[in-house]
């Protein structure tokens, strides 16, 4: 018997809402949306945790400019708080080196992190999901009882096609979906609207392509002033915060 499995639900029992930000494809802005979403919620006075589950390409710490911090060891690990966010990531252990992990290792690392991380009381735990819908997705769905998915796509045919499969799978597994956010929108496109119509998933809104966003990466104050954040904040205020 694996002693870790019994403890995971208790690690999130005092977390009101667990939101996994996913989208299937890489490069569609999952990490930027996850990190900024956590920032927006923290700025609004909520107790927020952010877990970067992209073990092979962790980047939330880069987006938020987090460095030189480590979890506190106390009957497990307490994530350090920065910018009002309790932050946990594989980077504390792998530093800046690559983590060449296969599926079974990803699963084990994920279970281990959930076992040892003491989130304590949170209003929101935001989970930045890796690309794909393999081990990490199946594991969070299996182990985190109250998880809900926030799906991200871009207006690209390639992204939309992958999101369709992800939504299909989550629906099959009866996992709640908060809705779809259209990221990097540059023009009106029927692709996303036909997707939400076809899959019967709420359309939460669009984030316009922001050419200044790259310059804000690594500086949370500048990030909060971008048009990207303004668009996301509108979605958060309208759909997520009121969705408690």
């Amino acid at each position: 018997m694996d002693p870790r499995l019994e403890i995971i639900p208790h690690r999130v029992e005092n977390v009101s809402q667990v939101i996994a930000v996913a989208g299937g494809k890489g490069g569609i802005g999952k990490s930027t949306v996850s990190a900024t979403l956590a920032l927006i919620l923290a700025q609004s006075g909520y107790r927020v945790g952010l877990l970067d589950l992209d073990f092979c390409g962790p980047s939330d710490h880069v987006i938020l400019g987090i460095k030189d911090i480590a979890p506190i060891e106390d009957k497990g690990l307490i994530p350090p708080e920065i910018h009002g966010i309790r932050f946990m990531s594989i980077v504390y252990f792998a530093k800046d080196q690559p983590s060449p992990l296969r599926g079974v290792d990803i699963s084990n690392a994920l279970i281990e992190l959930f076992t040892i991380t003491r989130w304590e009381v949170l209003d929101y735990l935001i989970i930045d999901m890796p690309p794909g819908m393999g081990d990490a997705t199946l594991d969070v769905v299996r182990f985190i009882p109250k998880i809900r998915f926030l799906i991200l796509t871009t207006p690209s045919k390639v992204a939309v096609e992958t999101v369709r499969k992800l939504v299909f799978m989550l629906k099959e597994l009866k996992i709640p979906i908060l809705g779809i956010i259209e990221n990097m929108k540059s023009a009106e496109s029927p692709l996303v609207s036909s997707l939400v119509h076809e899959m019967e998933v709420p359309y939460l809104g669009a984030i316009a392509f922001d050419s200044t966003l790259e310059r804000a990466i690594g500086d949370s104050k500048t990030l909060l002033r971008t048009n990207f954040t303004k668009d996301l904040k509108k979605i958060v205020t309208t759909h997520l915060v009121s969705n408690k």
Binding site: I90, Y92, A94, K95, S99, D105, I106, E112
Partner: peptide, 13 residues
């Protein structure tokens, strides 16, 4: 210590 906390980081080091 890193491997102690997260044994899969053995693949890193």
């Amino acid at each position: 210590e890193s491997i102690h906390f997260l044994p899969e980081t053995v693949h890193v080091y």
